[in-house]
Simulated assay, not measured.
Amino acid sequence: MPRNSFEVFSRRQFLAGGAALIGSSALAQSDDEQAFDPLRPPPEPEPPVQRNISAFRAKSWRPYFDNLRNGAILVDIDSRALHYWSANEGTYKLFPSSVPLSDDLTRRGRTQVVRKVEGPSWAPTPNMRKRNPEWPAYIPPGPDNPLGTHALYLGWKYYRIHGTHDTRKIGRKSSNGCIGLYNEHIAELFSLAKVGTQVLLI
């Protein structure tokens, strides 16, 4: 075999062998990365997200209230929406909301606005402290307050419709029982609702 031919052949053998070695190394690394580690099991698959866009639409107050005396607020937990009607039917508002994390934290039924606070302070309930002992006992009004800029206190103890500085929560199951709105929306609702406004959570 001529010298030049041998050199070409040897070079080809080297390149092919090197490629095979690199390929087998990459495969081994891939297998190691995918191997099951009993100390670090794979994460549970996330449940499918239920889309609720079709449910986020205007509603009539009549199926839910006998009248609009003092105005009315309807919170639809499933569609994560809050509806407001003024007493004279001249104003209707529809806002996206956050809702409780789980069914055991969710309360449904009729109540009313019993107090309005601009710049609310916040303290966790006894049950919250049990679940989260690291939480502070009190947070004054301000950017760190989980109630945002305004709060409507309901007739049920510890339940409120309030704002939030964490806008990621809106449209999600993210609260410990309250209903959350964007700060600009709760400010608008705060100006419309009054003490005595009817509230229904469904």
Results as ranks from 00 to 15, higher is better:
126 P>V: 02
183 N>E: 03
168 R>H: 15
163 G>T: 00
178 C>M: 06
167 T>E: 14
148 G>D: 12
190 F>D: 02
154 L>V: 00
128 M>C: 03
156 W>V: 07
193 A>P: 03
127 N>S: 14
156 W>L: 04
133 P>M: 06
152 L>G: 07
168 R>V: 08
174 S>Q: 09
196 G>L: 03
140 P>Q: 07
156 W>F: 02
169 K>A: 11
149 T>W: 03
162 H>R: 11
191 S>P: 09
145 N>C: 00
184 E>L: 15
170 I>F: 03
155 G>Y: 04
186 I>D: 13
140 P>M: 02
148 G>A: 10
181 L>D: 03
180 G>K: 06
147 L>T: 08
141 P>R: 15
193 A>I: 09
160 R>T: 06
141 P>V: 12
181 L>A: 01
164 T>R: 13
195 V>R: 12
188 E>T: 06
194 K>V: 11
182 Y>M: 04
139 I>A: 01
128 M>Y: 01
127 N>A: 12
124 P>V: 00
162 H>L: 01
167 T>I: 01
141 P>D: 11
142 G>P: 09
172 R>M: 11
189 L>Y: 03
187 A>F: 09
130 K>W: 10
167 T>S: 06
148 G>F: 04
130 K>T: 10
163 G>W: 07
187 A>W: 05
177 G>N: 05
136 P>Q: 11
137 A>E: 15
131 R>F: 01
